[in-house]
Design a binder for these strands. Structure first.
Lengths: 166, 166
DNA sequence: GTTAGTGCAAACCTTTTGCAGCTCT
DNA sequence: AGAGCTGCAAAAGGTTTGCACTAAC
């Protein structure tokens, strides 16, 4: 399991493995989802009701600075908070539907090619990379067409809040 | 000049061209830079000291929703505010040095290829795309090596605040 | 035992909202 | 004339900080 990888990495750097951090690491790692600080806090409280929101923020900050997790915005689909995911997976782009909020992940050659080109073009040493794409998923394109016929003016703002899942 | 393009587009949509909006459009368009709301407000006040910060936010929001400008985070190099740029340019990635803050722009084939692949892979209709890369520019890589020798512990956090220019 | 980490409260920064009055068209 | 926009004040949302206490090593 991936949690061990992160814990080992922290230990090596002399960072203490507190009870709170173990809980948070486990949560981040288990859920394949993109969690924001508040959601992570909510879930952590179910395990340890005494845990503090601040500890969540501090832990996320630490993990981010240690390049153990990545920070995403997901096109700010529902507010300006950030989302997090473990860094183990292969590099991928996030594709966010601006109507239903669904997040898909795109893996593949074009991404690593882009990375290599940027590195060689600028002599740049890449530490983090983030590609986010916003638009309409196949399903919502159809629904939008329908909406346009019924109420052309309102359709441009239509936003259906529903489970964001990849 | 590009400002005309945006103004025309607004007029066509029945959006009023107020004095304040003209000022802001001109500023966004002139400066080839990436401005955040506060900086834009600061500059606008030099032209019209009575302009309100809220108007800046409202104008940015309107332009963003009309897809006339793009919103960037620039890897949150210095805070969580957003940066804006006009949308006329060809699509490009933003390459941010995490040490000196310099922002470079990368144009090229890999980006449009990525876009096409995502569209065909998911049947997705892309409206906005954002690629941001963080790391060390050629210049700062050298400086960091030097820092590592002198003060290994401190070097990981070293951040030189200086003009963010592309 | 020492030092890093936690919880609490309070501050902070960025952005949004409600509303009365002003101004483009 | 009238809808749309602005300014002001106030609130909201998300995140960080100072400090005394606690717990990991």
């Amino acid at each position: 399991m991936a949690g061990e990888g992160i814990q080992g990495s922290l230990k090596k750097r002399g960072i203490r493995l507190t009870r709170q951090r173990m809980i948070l690491l486990k949560l981040i790692d288990q859920s394949g989802q993109h969690l924001d600080a508040e959601e992570l806090y909510r879930r952590a409280k179910e395990v340890d009701p005494k845990i503090n929101r601040v500890t969540v923020y501090r832990t996320l900050k630490m993990l981010k600075e240690g390049h153990l997790i990545d920070e995403l915005d997901l096109m700010h689909y529902e507010g300006d908070q950030h989302y997090y995911e473990t860094r183990m997976k292969q590099e991928h782009a996030h594709v966010v539907c601006l109507r239903c909020g669904k997040v898909e992940e795109f893996y593949g050659e074009p991404l690593s090619r882009l990375r290599r080109q940027i590195e060689s073009h600028f002599g740049f040493q890449i530490l983090v990379a983030r590609t986010e794409v916003g638009g309409y998923c196949a399903h919502c394109q159809v629904l939008r067409e329908r909406e346009m016929k019924e109420a052309p003016a309102a359709a441009s703002t239509t936003k259906v809040k529903q489970a964001r899942r990849s």
